[in-house]
Design a protein around this nucleic acid. Structure first.
Lengths: 327, 327
DNA sequence: ATCAAAGTTGTGAGCGCTAACAATTGCATC
DNA sequence: GATGCAATTGTTAGCGCTCACAACTTTGAT
C-alpha cells in the first residue's frame, strides 16, 4: 500500500480512502491512485483489514446432508449471492447432527471470525442448540419461520403439501395416504401438516400416515406394503427419492401408476421427469431460498435491521403419475 | 491474550508459545496458561495471526456443477478432511465455466489470501487457464493426473469403464455401444477411452459412440434412437442419470432390459438401486477423492513436497440391467 | 565451587491496514 | 485582501499476534 502511495504521489491513507470509497477524495487523485493500483497489481490484505475493522467479510454456512438435492442447491444460491456482495463463504458440513457437532462447527466459525452464519440444518432441535450458544454474530436459518433471535427464509412446505393433496382431491381421490419424511425434520413436519389440513378442509379424515426416512430404499420398502394392502387410491410422498422407490415397488407388484394408485412427489429433481412413469411433484426453488437467506443476513449485518422472514412459494408440476380416481 | 498472560502470571509471548505447541515451555506454566485460557474463554484472533504468519488457514474450493452428485460429495470429503486438519474451507461455485469466471473466482481467493486451492472443474481447458494465472499458492485438481504444476487426485475412470465393458463382454455381448458425456469433460474422455480400449483388446471394433450431455433428458432422447435401430445388444452409459433416461425410453418403446438390451451406468448414486430395473453401474468414492485432494494439498503446504497424484479405484456393482447376450 | 550448555521466559518490533485527529488547501464572502 | 468554512490530504496510533533476540534459570560436568 505504501508502494501504491508512492507511485501515485499521495499518502497511504489516501490510498485507503480510495479503496473504501470515501467521499472526500478529489477525482484527480482518485484516478491517479487507481492507476497506480492497477499498474502495481496491488491487492489489499484481508487479514490486516479485518484486524482493524473487526469484520472478516466471511459468512459461514452450517449445514447437514449437504450433498442432497435441496441443501446443495441452497448452498449454490447462498454462495452466489454472498460472492456478489463481496463476501467469502466458508462451509462446515455436519456428518451427523448432534449438539456436539453443531457446537464444534460454530466454534470453528467463531475462530474464523465470520460475520454471520447461515444454518441449513433441517432439524428443529438445532435451533435450540444454537440459541444456547449465544453466538456473537447474526444468524439466519433455512426453514426457520422467524424466531426473534433467528430469522430465516423458507419454502412454504405446508402450502406445497396442500397443492399436492388438493390436486389429488380434484381428481376425485378420497383415500389419500402420506409417506412422510422423519417427523423430527422441520420440512417433513410441515408437509405432514399441509397434507392433514388439506384433507380435513375437504371433510376427510387423514388416516394413512407412514413415516419414512427420505431414502429411495425406504420408499421401496413402504411401497411394497402399500401395494399389498391397497388401502389408499393415492399416495403423497414427501420427496422424489422415496417416490422413486415407491414407483419401483408398485411396478414389481403389478400395481399400475396412475391407473391403480396415483403418486405425487416433492422437490422436482431434474430426474423426476424421467421416472417410469414421469412423476407429478411439487417444485421448490432452493437457489432462491439461499439467495433470500443472504439478503436477510446482509440486511442485519449492514443496517442492523432484523428483517422479515422470507417465504418462497412452491409450485405443482403435473406429469403422469396422477389420474382421476378409478371409481 | 494480554489478559490470559496476566491471569497466568506470564508474558503474552509464553501464551503464544503454548498456543503454538512450542517445545520449550515447562509443563507447569503450560498448564497454568491453559487453565487461564479456558477460564477466560479466550480464542485467538485469526486475522492478527494471519497478518504475521502470512497464512490464512483457509483452503479455497473452486468448482462447477457443485450440486451434482459427484462434485457435492467431493466437497464433503474436502471439507471434512480440511476441517480435521484445522483449515477453513471457502467455496466458489462457478455458474458457468469460462476463462473469465475462473479468473474471477481465483481473484476472489487471492483476495481472501487462501493458502491453497482445490479445483473441481471437470473441463481440461480449466487447467490451461489456471496455468496462465500463475497462482502464488499450491493447487490440486480433481481429475488431473499430475502435471508438474498441477497434481491431483482422480478416480481411475478408464479402469471403471473397462470394468463395465468387460462385464458385458463376459456376458457374451459383442455390439456394445457407449453413450458418453460431453467429450470436453476429462471424465467423459477417460470413460470413452476405457470403453474403446476394452473393446479393442477383445478384438472388437468400437463403433457406436453417442455423445451425450449427462442429463436424464438426453439419455431419454438418445435411448429412443437406440431402441428404434437396435444396432447394439448392450449400452454402456457414462452416468446414472442418463441411464435413467435410457431406461425410460426403452420402457416406452417396449425394449426389455436386460433381455433385449443390457445397460450399465456409472456413478452408483443411491437411487440407482431403485431404477426399473435396478441399475448395474460403476461405483466411485467421491468423498475419498476429496480427502485425497486435501491430503495432497496439505503435503505441499506443510512439507513443500509435490506429492504423487492419488488414484482411487472404481468398483463394478452388478444389479439387474445386465444379462447374457440373447443369442 | 565454577563454568558452559541447554532449557525456559521476557522484551521489542512490526505485519498492513483503518480510525481519529491534525494540517493544509481552495474558495466564497465581506 | 483578510476571514471563515468546507473540502481535501497527511500524520499518528494501534488492532492482536508472532518472530528474533535478549535475559534469566536450571542442569550437569569439571
Amino acid at each position: 500500500m505504501e508502494d501504491v502511495a508512492r507511485v501515485a504521489g499521495v499518502s497511504h491513507q489516501t490510498v485507503s480512502r480510495v479503496l473504501n470509497n470515501h467521499p472526500n477524495v478529489s477525482s484527480k487523485t482518485r484516478e491517479r491512485v487507481e492507476q497506480a493500483i492497477t499498474e502495481l497489481g496491488y491487492r489489499r490484505n484481508t487479514a490486516a483489514r479485518s484486524l482493524v475493522t473487526r469484520r472478516s467479510q466471511t459468512i459461514g454456512v452450517l449445514g447437514s446432508e449437504m450433498a442432497q438435492y435441496g441443501p446443495s442447491h441452497t448452498l449454490l444460491g447462498v454462495q452466489q449471492a454472498a460472492r456478489e456482495a463481496g463476501y467469502f463463504v466458508s462451509v462446515a458440513a455436519l456428518r451427523e447432527v448432534t449438539p456436539e457437532t453443531i457446537k464444534d462447527a460454530m466454534a470453528h466459525f467463531m475462530d474464523q471470525g465470520v460475520d454471520g452464519v447461515v444454518v441449513t440444518v433441517p432439524h428443529p432441535g438445532t435451533f435450540d442448540v444454537l440459541k444456547d450458544i449465544t453466538a456473537q454474530v447474526p444468524m439466519v436459518a433455512v426453514g426457520s419461520i422467524g424466531d426473534e433471535h433467528l430469522t430465516g427464509a423458507t419454502v412454504d412446505q405446508r402450502q406445497g403439501a396442500r397443492l399436492a393433496v388438493e390436486h389429488l382431491l380434484e381428481l376425485g381421490h378420497q383415500r389419500i395416504g402420506h409417506l412422510s419424511g422423519p417427523s423430527d425434520w422441520i420440512d417433513a413436519a410441515a408437509r405432514i401438516e399441509g397434507w392433514r389440513d388439506a384433507l380435513t378442509d375437504a371433510g376427510i379424515e387423514p388416516v394413512t400416515l407412514i413415516e419414512g426416512d427420505w431414502s429411495a430404499e425406504c420408499g421401496y420398502r413402504e411401497g411394497l406394503k402399500v401395494a399389498a394392502d391397497r388401502s389408499v387410491s393415492a399416495l403423497f410422498v414427501a420427496n422424489d427419492q422415496m417416490a422413486l422407490g415407491v414407483l419401483r415397488a408398485f411396478h414389481e407388484l403389478g400395481v399400475q401408476v396412475p391407473e391403480d394408485i396415483s403418486v405425487v412427489g416433492f422437490d422436482d429433481q431434474p430426474e423426476s421427469a424421467y421416472f417410469i412413469p414421469p412423476l407429478t411433484t411439487v417444485a421448490q426453488d432452493f437457489e432462491e431460498l439461499g439467495q433470500r437467506c443472504i439478503a436477510l443476513l446482509l440486511d442485519r449485518l449492514e443496517s442492523g435491521a432484523t428483517g422479515t422472514p422470507a417465504t418462497v412459494a412452491p409450485r405443482l408440476v403435473v406429469r403422469s403419475t396422477t389420474a382421476p380416481a378409478s371409481k
